[in-house]
């Protein structure tokens, strides 16, 4: 696996993503998701909202890197708020 150049932070990142997917699957088995139409006007399930949150978080992090000279934790806080808003209103 040396050729994959693993590091602890990147491994933790992928473990977090995998844990989210696994957790969402368990949640869906216990409490099946119901489609709803939110502020974007599109029908979303819980998995769609997670996808939108992760995709949006990617762009928030890139914008933070490109525009702000501050530790990346700031972007993480914004991503948390963004994900909350997506799960609440989208």
């Amino acid at each position: 696996m040396d050729w994959m150049a693993w590091t602890l932070p990147t491994a933790l990142f992928f473990i977090a993503i995998a844990a989210m997917l696994f957790g969402m699957s368990l949640l869906h088995m216990k409490y099946p998701s119901v489609a709803r139409i939110g502020v974007l006007g599109i029908e979303t399930m819980r998995g769609d909202r997670l996808f939108i949150s992760l995709l949006g978080s990617g762009f928030i992090n890139l914008a933070w890197i490109g525009l702000v000279d501050a530790p990346q934790y700031g972007a993480l806080i914004i991503c948390g708020i963004f994900a909350f808003c997506v799960f609440r209103w989208v």
């Binding site: 050729w3 150049a5 693993w6 590091t7 890197i65 490109g66």
Partner: peptide, 29 residues
């Protein structure tokens, strides 16, 4: 996954990598 790993590191060949954090993203953006 490999691409993600490479994006946070620098390499001078020989399958040796050095952690550079967000440097490449900053440089490009």
């Amino acid at each position: 996954m490999t691409v993600v790993n490479y994006s946070f590191q620098d390499s001078f060949g020989g399958n040796e990598f050095f952690w550079v954090g967000l440097e490449w993203y900053q440089e490009l953006l």
